[in-house]
Design a protein around this nucleic acid. Sequence first.
RNA 1: GGAGAGAUGGCCGAGUGGUCUAAGGCGCACGCCUGGAGAGCGUGUAUACGCCAAAAGCGUAUCGAGGGUUCGAAUCCCUCUCUCUCCGCCA
Length: 424
Amino acid sequence: MLTLKLIRENTDEVIKHLAVKHFDGSVIISKIIELDDRRKAIQLQLDNNLAEQNRIAKEIGKLFNEGTTEANSAKAKSGELKELSKSLSQELNEVEEEQRKLLMQVPNLPHESVPQGVSASDNVVVRTGGNIPNLAKEALPHWDLASKYNIIDFELGVKITGSGFPVYRGKGAKLQRALINFFLDYNTQAGYEEIEPPHMVNEDSAYGTGQLPDKDSQMYHVTADGFYMIPTAEVPVTNIYRDVILHASMLPIKLTAYTPCFRREAGSYGKEVRGLNRLHQFDKVEIVQIQHPDRSYESLEEMVSHVEGLLQKLELPYRIVKLCGGDMSFTSALTYDFEVFSAAQHKWLEVSSVSNFESYQANRMMLRFKEEGDKKAQLAHTLNGSSLALPRIVAALLENNQTPYGIKIPKVLLPYCGFDIIDL
RNA sequence: GGAGAGAUGGCCGAGUGGUCUAAGGCGCACGCCUGGAGAGCGUGUAUACGCCAAAAGCGUAUCGAGGGUUCGAAUCCCUCUCUCUCCGCCA
């Protein structure tokens, strides 16, 4: 959520920047400011009114203490004021709610370095690495390899739950565990504190990171208890600091967590989602940083090279793209996507998305910090990224490393797997 | 799931209708004292919104959340949430 201060003080700038995200803010912004003027006027009147009521009540209290029980005219006056206060505060609530609703509809401002563009094809490739293998003509896509070596069973998942819930078995299951451990170790060595958070969250948390109200159809909702299955560890982990005021000296806070992720992804079926390409449940290791506004872009770059290091160790061909205005998420100010090349599908697959949300999430969840000696708390910046999402990494590993005699496992995973090849 | 007890500031904890402008303590910050430290003494110690060009200052709200009674609610009433204890169930 953008701050009212920013909207009021830099109205034209805000509208101009929103246009990069192809969001026409002119009408909604002026509506928000208009509501804000009304809000202030109402609150001034209400506050004065309440102050008068308080004054009368104290006076009556004084009379009682002095033994006088007659205070009927004051009581009547207070009654009138109370009526007025009631309608004013109702009006105030309505205005505030309407303003909040509008504010929630305004996306985060893109950073000035965000490239212009409307779709993924306008994203800018900033770096590439690794080598794309030359596979034989008879090379198999990962879903065929998965069944050939009996390491992932998609049909069995359908029987147990439904499509998009694969069953990993044998070396396939072990590979999952190896990747998770490898990622977590790599992150904690870089100073991230390991967190194991709840896999379901309440409504407040879902609002805090922005999954609600607009993306509720993407989350599994446990209606009996009002919980949501987490679509990413970002939600529970970032919400650790909801309604918290930190000391500036505690920044940056760096956290990492492995969790399964649950996404309904309603309505998307077909070739694009075959095999591991898109699932309802998948494993992911996430990194989160809470940082001082002056240093959040340094952190973003640090997180980008951190994730890049993982892909290099896995010896996968990758590219890093900077998302254009039209392809960015609602809440992000700047996002780098990481893609690996899946050689049998001849496709780049997104395996990580590293973003700086600046104060957009922090404002929504009241995550602030106080500078030593300062009286006023200010909003922190939040950042997060995957390091990494497993299924597409597995897809690329299987396809790219296939040989006639089995699938080779990257050296870095050997201590975690205990094997260096998946064969028959 | 059943029965009971609770929820007060950064923390502990008092407070059952009117100087609550929330006692007291701990912690923290600053000052005095000291050769230095400690002890002691003193002062201060939340958040949001609004008024004000800004600061100072002032106003309003906040004692788990929401509603109600009353001129006046931390205190009384209703609803909800959460925590604890006991029982039941359970990895």
